[in-house]
Amino acid sequence: MKDEKVVDQENSTRAVSIAHAHTDSGTDILSEAIGSVRIGHARACRVRGAGSWGIRFPAFAGSGFHILLRGSAWLITANGRPRALKAGDVVLSPFGAERGLSHAPCLLQNLPRVVPHDPGPAEVEILCGAYWLDHGEVHPFLRALPEVIAVSADHGRTSQLGALTNLLAVDMSDTRPGSRAARAALLDLLLTHVLRQWLEQNRDVERREIDDPAIAVALREIHTSPDKPWTVQQLGETVGMSRTAFTKRFTALVGKPPMTYLTSWRLSYGARLLRETKAPLASIARQVGYSTEFAFGAAFRREYGISPGRFRDRTQRDNPVAVNV
């Protein structure tokens, strides 16, 4: 079994490589990644503890975070060493890996899955939130990150990250109209700032795979023209590579074969259009590269397990932020 530091280093290298490859292709990787989880359900809650306490969070499809508002705690993972946390620290679980929080170092399997409840004065207060994906999968960039990321508000962006955590903490008790939309927007901003800070702290990570302008060009073509009837042969010819060489390089860097990535991008983009616009299904189908509404619907159901129409109704009901276009 690989050492935890080696695994984290490999994951960091891969994530930074993907980020730079997308940057070279003209793509905003953070917006793309956060847009992919935004189609899920945004949830948040408070955890309060005193004395001996602990909680285990099961693995799930999505991205979650924990903000230590007050006191101290230990972050517990399945394979890594316990990490000490202090007030102001933010823990991000990019792809929903199992993890836990406790008053003291321990084994993850020894923690209960019941939220601690102490009616008395709390020594520790933690704000927990997540985007739960009922369908689809977590974005490749998020999956390439370490299973947990811990950043501190003391690092450079104190006023920004600190202000966001304060706003989110206040919003948790807000029941006025618009609170759900505000909470989702705050979660977006929090995830953005945490990922930005992590990328800044890891900017010097070795980037063995990013010096590949051909893959950057291919990504740009996919992202800017998903409506084109791309094949692996056409993408390879566009960047001056053979089908076999292109497939090998693309898969090594991006983590998926070209056509698998293209399909995932088209459907993820389609899901965002369904959620954030009122464009007709036929129009969305054409924008994301499907000749008919039926073909788009069949592919969408295979990926998300739900029809585009039902998906739109559910997401716009749960997260009312759609706009007219």
Rank of each mutant, 00 (worst) to 15 (best):
D3T: 11
Q9M: 07
E10C: 06
N11Y: 03
S12L: 06
S12D: 05
R14F: 04
V16C: 13
S17H: 05
S17K: 00
I18T: 02
A21K: 05
T23L: 13
G26S: 11
T27A: 11
I29M: 09
S31Y: 06
A33P: 14
V37G: 02
G40E: 07
A42Q: 11
A42Y: 13
S52L: 13
R56I: 11
F57H: 13
F57V: 13
P58S: 09
G62Y: 08
S63K: 07
L69Q: 14
R70F: 07
A73E: 00
A73H: 04
W74Q: 08
I76V: 15
I76F: 01
A78N: 05
N79H: 11
R81G: 09
K86A: 10
S93Y: 01
E98M: 09
R99G: 00
P105C: 03
L107N: 09
Q109R: 04
N110H: 10
P112S: 03
P112G: 10
R113N: 08
P116N: 04
G120F: 02
P121F: 08
A122Y: 01
E123I: 04
I126H: 03
A130R: 15
H135F: 13
V138L: 06
V138K: 01
P140R: 01
L142W: 02
L142Q: 00
A144I: 00
P146Q: 01
E147Q: 12
A150V: 15
S152G: 03
S152A: 00
R157T: 13
T158R: 06
S159W: 14
S159H: 13
Q160K: 09
A169T: 13
M172R: 07
S173K: 04
D174R: 09
D174M: 08
D174N: 12
S179R: 08
R180T: 15
R180E: 14
A185P: 00
L186S: 06
D188Y: 15
L189Y: 12
T192L: 13
Q197H: 11
E200D: 15
V205C: 13
D211E: 14
D211A: 15
D212H: 15
V217F: 06
E221Y: 08
H223K: 11
T224R: 14
D227M: 08
D227Y: 14
D227H: 14
P229C: 06
W230Q: 10
T231A: 10
T231V: 07
V232D: 12
G236E: 03
E237T: 10
S242H: 08
T244E: 10
A245D: 06
F246C: 08
F246A: 07
K248P: 00
R249M: 09
F250E: 02
V254W: 04
V254Y: 04
P257K: 04
P258C: 09
T260M: 10
T263N: 06
T263Y: 05
W265V: 13
R266V: 06
L267S: 05
Y269D: 03
A271H: 04
A271Y: 03
L274F: 12
R275L: 03
K278D: 10
P280C: 06
P280E: 08
L281F: 03
L281K: 01
A282C: 00
A285E: 02
V288C: 09
V288D: 00
S291M: 07
S291I: 05
T292V: 01
A295F: 02
F300M: 01
F300H: 03
E303Q: 12
I306R: 07
S307N: 03
P308V: 07
D313Q: 14
R314Q: 13
Q316R: 15
R317S: 15
D318W: 03
N319M: 08
V321W: 06
V323T: 14
